[in-house]
Amino acid sequence: MSLVHAENLTKTYRAGDVDVQAIKGVDFTIEPASLVAFVGPSGSGKSTLLNMVGCLDHPTGGTLRVLDTDIARLDRRAAARFRGEHIGFIFQDFNLIPVLSVAENIEYPLLMVQAWPADKRHARVDELLEAVGMTEQADKRPDQLSGGQKQRVAVARALATHAKLVLADEPTANLDHDTAYRILELMKRMRDEFGTTFIFSTHDPKIMAEAEVTFTLEDGRLTNHRGDA
């Protein structure tokens, strides 16, 4: 069973009086435990596609199934529940909660989204801290961390609930090349360790080369596909 399956997927926005078709009939399939990149220039529809796969937005046409669930059928609450259970997010600006420590940021989805018991929570946080190499910084606040460290924490937070799918919109855009590669290495390692599928968007050619599967988007259409998806 594929993890994500899109068929003739479209998305149209209303911008003032004009309808803007951001995604124009896209078909793709993503298998579990893969490292997938959606690449393309700004405005090509990468973020829109990622938002739909992440149940943050609804398609206006076609079919999109994530973990065998028809995304179009989920209302606001059900979509939030689905995201909380199955999907992790990594953001370009890291988006860590500034009043929480590193450990608490990782713990947040376990506590506020899934309500795990304390002992299981702490064990999982320790496991992830070690996995992303942030054990020493567990008690630090986000403003005491470097960009790379923040993104490591974000990766750990995205994986906390054993998400099957982690979506990362331009995860390396605010990082230097060395750090960006290290984050991609971390994603690969986490994929290998936990079997998680990482889907990220980028327009950096060097970063996209690291992905095992690449979908190229141009003006809302898939124009190229590399790798086994």
Binding site: G54, R77, G84
Partner: peptide, 16 residues
């Protein structure tokens, strides 16, 4: 607002 967007995106239920 961005923080609210983040916690909503990662699945925090609206009532929470």
């Amino acid at each position: 607002i961005r923080e609210i967007g983040t916690i909503a995106a990662i699945g925090t239920p609206p009532h929470r």
